[in-house]
Write a protein that binds this DNA or RNA. Structure first.
Lengths: 130, 130
DNA sequence: TCTTGACCTGGAGTCAGCTCAAGGATTTAT
DNA sequence: ATAAATCCTTGAGCTGACTCCAGGTCAAGA
């Protein structure tokens, strides 16, 4: 699979794919004889994983670290797990925070309803009193 | 309340407070005779609101727009409500996405448990066969 | 064969959102 | 009364994460 196919398949810009690889977020992709990237299934898996984790807010730095550990093989399993746990916990806290803010927004929207009704009433009264 | 008190109270850096005001995220704060900012209760309320909304990911631009509408008075009530609804919907989608990724991370962590157990077993077998 | 489009690299540019620095006025503690 | 801390403004600098550009190579259709 060439780079533009991967780009289309996962909705990640070509420049970003190259950037991720350069930054070590994706293990080096195999090349054709002439030097063009040829993504394997596994490479695609990485692209999808990185896209997903980035969208959850994991930093480039964190993901680089994870891939780095991955490339060192089995002896980093525990470290990788702990990294994932730390990120999961961070994400969980973030989600809770956002849910609370969601509540707050909902409440605020409700009070806007009331304000708008009150405001219309006032306008109506004004009109009637003319 | 002076700027450093507000900064401490809400955990927003002084520079950021000035930046928010300059960018119109907070209505202009009243000054003392000599030009120092003197935050009212209401100003503090804005600071808290902006801090909260920023932490939920609302953009500077969006918040500027909201404060802008607010300062135009009652005739923008509906617009403000609609803005809040749009942001709430965006946030809700975001939260759902993040929950899904949380699931995925949890699953991945579980499989790491298994891998680690399998790996330890293998090591043990090696040691015994020596 | 020629040309057009996709790919390559290295490095510069961009954007949001702060954060810091310089130079000067004001307030507060001694 | 004076030194130290805090405030002010303007404008530059920084960080993370891309995104674009120039200049060159490669591949596939007319």
């Amino acid at each position: 699979m060439n780079i533009s196919e991967v780009s289309k398949k996962y909705g990640v810009p070509i420049d970003t794919l190259r950037y991720y690889e350069k930054e070590g977020l994706i293990p080096p992709v195999r090349r054709t004889e002439s030097g063009l990237r040829d993504y394997s299934e596994k490479d695609c898996g990485w692209v999808e994983f990185i896209k997903c984790m980035r969208s959850a807010g994991l930093s480039i730095e964190t993901l680089r670290e994870y891939i780095d550990l991955y490339q060192k093989g089995n002896r980093t399993l525990l470290k990788r797990k702990n990294l994932l746990i730390a990120e999961r916990d961070r994400l969980a806290r973030r989600v809770e925070e956002m849910q609370a803010i969601l509540q707050r927004l909902n409440y605020k929207i409700d009070t806007y309803e009331d304000k708008i009704v009150a405001c219309e009433k006032k306008l109506l009264q004004k009109r009637n009193s003319k």
